[in-house]
């Protein structure tokens, strides 16, 4: 007897074909993203490394010298590409803003999760969400019209510089670090707190000795994430830092960061020239730093899990 059902079990059907199509479509989309990442690395690295291979700049000189004039050459005939001022500028604003933002963010997060988890959380949660959404040029504009004059009046100088950049970045990363800290604190199991309170500890002792301690990996991740954002922020910083490629004397003298020099310079150099390649080297440095931040976050997250 002929069995249609038996035959159909051995044949391809509409579902088989749709499954095949689906696999191909979804894999292609994923491959596009991976391809983008690979080509970003490839292009930025090939351009950025040209400074060292084609223009013969010494890597150590690039990292440690402070004269940035890659259009002209030094006594050895290689371009003057000393990126130290920008490196110091970038790390300076990043570290300082993170140092100020961390206590604020963690304190706000503690307030939202431990002190006033209902009312306080309901008010502050949308506040942080909104702050995260404000575009960075708006932060830059406010920095330019409020922070820079404030620094000028209070501390003297032009007002532009690392201090102004720090203030702007502080406000910029504060909401991000706060909301990630909130997540970290909320992940601490409730019974930790109950156990501590049951032993007669005050709320503050519980927060300080139990909650904060077990949330440390998560809080560290939040801070590093904030630092990575601060390090990579371009326009808001560029608008208030003063854009002088000099080693900063103090916090209120005009300075520059990797991103600010890139922002200003890329349009003014000819593709392929030594000056242009030197800028790509800065971009490569920026890329590598963002990798380092990423790696750190993953390391901490892994350790936190164990």
């Amino acid at each position: 007897m002929h069995d249609d059902i038996k035959d159909s079990l051995l044949k391809k059907s509409r579902a088989t074909r749709s499954e095949q199509r689906g696999r191909i479509i979804s894999l292609t989309c994923t491959a596009i993203i991976v391809l983008i990442v690979v080509s970003i690395f490839y292009f930025v690295a090939s351009k950025g490394l040209a400074t060292f291979f084609s223009n013969k700049v010494n890597v150590w000189d690039f990292l440690s010298k402070s004269i940035w004039n890659p259009g002209s050459t030094d006594s050895h005939g290689s371009p003057q590409a000393g990126a130290l001022p920008m490196i110091i500028g970038s790390f300076g604003v990043t570290l300082l803003s993170a140092i100020i933002a961390t206590p604020f963010a963690i304190a706000t997060a503690i307030f939202m999760t431990e002190i006033s988890p209902n009312k306080g959380y309901k008010i502050l949660q949308p506040v942080t969400e909104l702050l995260v959404g404000i575009p960075s040029v708006v932060y830059g504009f406010i920095g330019l019209s409020v922070v820079v004059p404030f620094v000028r009046h209070t501390f003297g100088g032009t007002g532009f510089g690392i201090l102004a950049g720090t203030f702007v970045l502080f406000v910029m990363i504060l909401p991000t670090v706060t909301s990630m800290s909130v997540d970290a604190l909320r992940a601490v199991p409730r019974y930790y707190r109950e156990a501590s309170l049951a032993l007669g500890a005050t709320r503050w002792q519980t927060i300080y000795k139990v909650v904060l301690r077990s949330a440390t990996p998560g809080l560290a991740t939040a801070v590093i994430f904030g630092m990575s954002r601060a390090f990579g922020e371009a326009l808001a910083v560029q608008m208030v830092i003063g854009n002088a490629v000099l080693l900063p004397h103090n916090l209120i003298s005009p300075a520059s960061t990797l991103t600010s020099v890139l922002t200003m310079g890329m349009g003014n150099t000819v593709m392929g020239s030594a000056a242009n390649n030197a800028l790509w080297s800065l971009a490569l440095l920026l890329l590598l730093m963002s990798l380092v931040f990423n790696l750190l976050i993953n390391k901490i997250a892994k350790r936190g899990r164990i």
Partner: peptide, 19 residues
């Protein structure tokens, strides 16, 4: 794949712009 998506999401937007 997940790592590359992670990396892409943490890249500074100026780097994306230059790319």
């Amino acid at each position: 794949i997940r790592t590359s998506i992670d990396i892409l999401s943490s890249l500074p937007s100026i780097v994306v712009g230059l790319f």
